[in-house]
Amino acid sequence: MEIWVNPACSKCRAATAALDEAGVEYTVRRYLDDPPSREELAAVLDRLGLEPWDVARPKETKEAGLAGTPKDAGHRDAWLDALAANPRILQRPIITADDGTTIIARDADSLARVLPQG
């Protein structure tokens, strides 16, 4: 299992604490220090069933100059390029389980999808 985190993010800290409590082994990727490539982002989005604008944080999107960029197939590449160039735009934490299940773990229900059922 891999979790993309920003250590300053309370949701990321809560997710890693839940993984620790569940005894789950995982790898931490500090995605601001080790940004995902455009290809990695596209693969994560495919597993999530989402588009790039769906995982963009509104405030950071505006600051990165994407606020007026259309959210459509014709602009998908521009969104992917922007996410790769500005990883702080990403919603977090993003967890990919060993079976390929990928979630944005911003709430307990989402996180439960990758925790062992006890």
Rank of each mutant, 00 (worst) to 15 (best):
M1G: 04
E2K: 15
I3A: 14
W4Y: 15
C9A: 08
C9P: 08
S10D: 12
C12Y: 10
R13D: 03
A15Q: 04
T16E: 15
A17S: 07
A18H: 04
A18G: 00
L19T: 06
L19G: 03
D20F: 07
D20L: 11
D20M: 11
Y26C: 03
T27F: 15
V28K: 12
Y31K: 06
Y31P: 00
L32T: 04
P35Y: 03
P35H: 11
P36V: 06
P36Y: 07
S37Q: 06
S37P: 04
S37A: 03
A43I: 07
V44R: 13
R47A: 12
L48Y: 02
L48N: 05
L48R: 02
L50Y: 15
L50T: 01
E51K: 05
E51L: 07
D54F: 13
V55E: 01
R57Q: 12
P58V: 06
P58T: 09
E60Y: 06
T61P: 01
L66I: 02
G68T: 10
P70F: 04
D72P: 11
A82D: 04
L83N: 09
N86Q: 11
N86P: 06
R88T: 14
R88I: 09
L90N: 09
Q91T: 05
R92A: 07
R92C: 08
P93C: 08
P93R: 13
I95S: 03
A97C: 03
D98E: 12
D98F: 12
T102I: 11
I103V: 10
I103A: 05
A105F: 01
D107T: 10
A108Y: 00
A108N: 10
A108P: 01
A108K: 15
S110R: 14
L111G: 12
L111A: 11
R113Y: 07
V114P: 06
G118R: 13
